[in-house]
Each structure stands twice: as C-alpha cells, then as structure tokens.
Amino acid sequence: MSTPRLTDSAEAYAAWIAPQASLVVLQPTTLCNLDCSYCYLPFRRRRMEMSVETAQAVAASLAEQQLGHVTEVCWHGGEPLAIGPEKLAALMAPFEELRRAGRVRHSLQTNATLIDHAWCDLFLKHDVAIGVSIDGPADLNAERVDWAGRPAFDRIVTGIGRLVERKIRYSLIAVVGAGIDRAVDLLDFLAGLGPTSIGLNIEELEGVNTSRSQPVPARARAFWEAVFAWSADHRDVEIRELDRLAYYLRTIRDGGRASWEAHRYDPLPTVAANGDVVLLSPELAGIRDERYSDFLAGNILDEPLNEILAGAWRLPYVSEFLDGLTACRETCSFFDFCRGAQAGNRYFENGRFDTTETNYCRTSKQELVQALAGIAQLPAASTSTRSTEDEK
C-alpha cells in the first residue's frame, strides 16, 4: 500500500482508512447485568438507553452509503439484552427497510444470561447473527459474575440452550485468562456447545481494565501451539484466529498480494447510547481524555455519519494512529499479516496512538505466527514474503 509520509492530511487518511463503514457498533444501553472482573466498560452500572431518534439517525446515514455496500450493525453494550426485547425491537425498526434490501445485516454480542423465547423471536424476525461470550467450563468462567458476585455460568449455558432449542446459530467468544494454560479443556468445552465458530481473545489491557497482569509471550505461544494441535484433530471446528491466518496465507500463495495490500481499515464508528460517535476502537467509547477531546468524532443527532467520517482525518488521535501505522509498516516484520497494532491497544497500553508494538500484538498476532512457524519448523519470517502486521 502506498501511504504518504505526512499523515496529518486527508490524503493519508484516505490511503489508510476506508471511506465507508462496513461495521457500525451501536450501544443500546450502557447497563450490564454482570460484573466481570476484566470488563473494560466504564458505565456498566448505569442505565443510559439509546433513543429511537438516535437509531433513526444512524439508519438514515447508512441509507446514504453507496448502493451495493453492506453494513453490519452490531448491537453491543453494556449488555444489549438489558434494554429488553420491546425496546431493542423499536431500535431495530428504522433499519428494517435497509435489512430487507440486503444493505444492512444485524449482529449482537451477549452474555446470554437473559435469553428467553421473546428474545429468540426477535433474533429470528430480524435474522440477527448472535455472538455469545463465555470463557470455558465453570472454573474458567469464574470471573463472569453478577453484581452480587454469583457465578453466571449456569445462566449462560441455559441461554445457549434456548438458542439451540430454537435452532438459532451462534458463535462463541472466550476471553482467555486462566484458560491460557488449558487450551484443550477450553476448546473441548466450547466446541461441545456446538457454535458456528470460536473466537479466542487473550485478555487485554483496555478501557477501565488497566491494572491486571497480562500474559507473557511465552505462555501465549504455548497456548497457540496447543490450539493448532487441537485444531488438527478437530478440522470441522472453525477457530477465528487460525482461519484469519490461513486466509492470509492462501491469499498470498494464490497471487492475491495486491488485493491484500489494498485493504484499508474500517473506520469502525461506535455510536454510544446518547449518539456520540468514536472511531477506530469501540473500547474508546466513554473514556475521558482531554488531550483527545474524549475521542469524540461527532454526534449522530447533529451530523450524518458520512460527514463525521469525511472530517475524521482532522482528529488528533486519528492522525496519531496513521503515524503509528506508518511506523508499524516500517519497523515490524509481522506487518504483512497483522497490518498494524490496534488503536485501542496502542492507547491503553502505551498512552498514545503513534506507538507501535503492544502486548496484544505479541500475544495475539506475533505468537500465533511463531507457533505455526514452530510447528512447521520454519523461521517465522517465512510466513511473510516481505518485512512489513489486521484487525481483531
């Protein structure tokens, strides 16, 4: 990818960042019914709910995107189900014409504890792709508790059972903390629940989760080696991280380098319950930092999304992020696969966006590649055809 050196320009923004959002994250409520010990959300005790007017403004903005462009609208939180099925149905209503036209598709990430048949009816009506957060069997899921400190495990499994009963497909995402030394136990359990795919998020420093110790690269490499070995015996189970690496390798092998390098970052707008918009990382929503004007790119009630994105290159944290991507490309041997450290991880680990390597890079990208190289008994650099790292 040809990127200008001066990344404080609209041209540099256009070279690195896609002009239209393919994923828009909406926060129907800040409230969560759980108090997971590693949670990054600053306002999960408070019930701030999105208005229908805000949802209408987002839908109107997406209607302005070019025909043929499909946008995933991801309902995130907080716990999105904490708003109740009637209110979420009202928030989804403004998108229905776009959904029926194939221009919008819904997804929702949930802890599953509140799923009942009314929720299943809504998921089926709007063809919602469901992601469930669970960290493994009961002992590995022990940090997912409610506000009274009671384990959420049985309620999560019950919610998953209701999805299975209604034949609603779902994916799983596990935060890998204690499970980093028990990959086989973790994967055996998750696969036994019957998901369409499994995502493995090694715990990160982000949001208000800034003081817990983080896994070191050596443990991460051992974890990924165990994941590769498990996957070799369970080829019918899709593991998100392994599939992303495999897709990269296939693309390069099949002559698709030009298309791979032409890839631009999704601006990833996140719309908070009050309509405020932050870019590049949902974890920045609600974080206060005067240096970056609290990361606010605008408010969807005041201006449409296309105008917010058109002026995003002027935001100091966006400009810093572009400088960081340039530095990643010039200094990191994993860049060809990774395409640069994530914006949220840069900020929460290093305090700025124009830095490069993070612990997230090392444990979730670099050690993933190193584990595959070790299994193949090849130097890690051989998995990349140039000395140059993708999104979560």
Score class of each variant (00 low, 15 high):
E290K: 13
A297I: 05
V208C: 08
I300T: 03
D236K: 09
D188R: 03
G192E: 07
A297C: 07
G255P: 05
G255Y: 06
A312M: 04
P304Y: 00
L249S: 04
G192V: 08
S211H: 11
V277H: 11
V278Q: 05
A258M: 09
E307L: 14
E261F: 12
G256M: 10
F321W: 15
L322P: 01
A262R: 12
I308K: 10
Y292Q: 01
T270G: 01
R244G: 14
R219G: 08
D276G: 07
R212W: 04
N209Q: 15
G298T: 01
L186R: 11
F223P: 10
F189E: 07
I300W: 06
A218H: 10
L249I: 07
L205E: 15
S197Q: 13
V216F: 00
D243I: 12
P282D: 11
L186Y: 09
P304F: 00
L315G: 02
F228V: 02
E203C: 08
R235A: 14
G255Q: 05
S231I: 02
G311A: 12
L305I: 02
P217T: 12
D185T: 12
D188Y: 06
A246C: 01
E320P: 05
A262K: 07
L296V: 10
D254F: 10
V227M: 09
Y248A: 13
A310Y: 03
Y265I: 11
D233P: 00
S259H: 08
E225K: 12
F295G: 01
F295Y: 15
R264V: 00
D266Q: 05
V277N: 12
E320S: 08
E204W: 02
R244Q: 13
G275Q: 09
N209M: 08
I239F: 00
G298S: 03
F228K: 02
E225F: 01
L245Q: 09
V278W: 04
L186Q: 10
T196L: 14
G324D: 04
I239Y: 02
N306E: 15
L315E: 00
V216R: 12
